[in-house]
Amino acid sequence: MKHARMVIVVVLFLWCGMSDAQEIIVVTEIWEPYNFVKDGNVIGISTEIVEHTLQQAGMTIKDGKIGVYPWARAYAMALEDENVLIYTILRTEDREKLFKWVGMLLPSEKFYFYKHRTRSDVVVKTLDDAKQYQIGVLRDSIHGQFLTANGFPKESLDGVSDQVLNLRKLLYDRIDLILDVEATLKIRTQEQNLPLPEFEQVLFLFEHGYYMAFSQKTSDTIVERAQSAFQEVQTSGIIQEILEKYK
């Protein structure tokens, strides 16, 4: 009898622990069409894929709400805190051991340097050419990490918390170059009523896939459940339906 009670206590303890572990803090940034806010709700291609994955894995989002922050803050939370899931994040060699990865969520896209069309004095044919210019980057993002890894001096990188600010600074010639994705640049300029033809694509930089990633302080059990759930979401055809929805 005593043994039976002990078994029940252990089972209840483990069940409670598993229930707590299933609640995940989910963070991201504004990056259309992947994750953005509309009518007070966080939506987007990546958002829906992440939500389907967590639902399939039997996990819940803490407080029932995805946290949308400037990228630097979301990134810091995913680096430092427990049971944090960040998306849409590019998977790079430098980041590989910093997180526990799930995905790839979406096919990779190409990042380019852009300049203001009127700036004939800004000539960039190679990566080294760009080192003489002032470059607007999104703070703690792949932008600065890529450039720093390729020998760009710190003083040439102008970090901001919002990529839209970089677009405006480029148009007013306060910086010389920015990094962006063609499709995202088109959406941002439309939303902000900025002239897309004024942004001239000058040099291809890199291409990486979009992932979701858990903090290192997340248990491997949770990560493995999410990975398994994501594979089920992939084979179900849901991702293609989401892509068509946002087309």
Rank of each mutant, 00 (worst) to 15 (best):
M212K: 09
Q55H: 14
D81L: 15
L14A: 04
G151D: 05
Q134M: 10
M6V: 11
F199W: 08
K65V: 15
Q201C: 09
N83D: 12
G237L: 11
T184Y: 05
D162C: 01
G209S: 15
E207N: 14
A183R: 13
T118V: 06
V137F: 07
W71T: 05
T126R: 13
L85V: 00
L196H: 14
V164H: 05
I135V: 14
P197H: 13
N166K: 03
L194R: 10
D81I: 05
Q227S: 13
D180E: 14
L98T: 01
E96N: 03
I242S: 04
F13G: 01
W31C: 01
D121P: 04
S46Y: 02
E109L: 12
H143F: 15
L14R: 00
S228D: 06
S19K: 09
I135Q: 01
D140K: 15
Q192M: 12
I30G: 01
W31N: 04
V164Y: 05
K100G: 01
E182S: 13
A76F: 14
L194T: 09
F204D: 06
I222N: 05
C16N: 02
V181E: 11
I238M: 12
L79Y: 11
V181K: 10
K110D: 10
I61R: 08
R73A: 12
K97Y: 00
G144R: 10
T184F: 05
N150M: 08
I187L: 12
M77S: 07
I175A: 05
S156T: 15
Q192I: 01
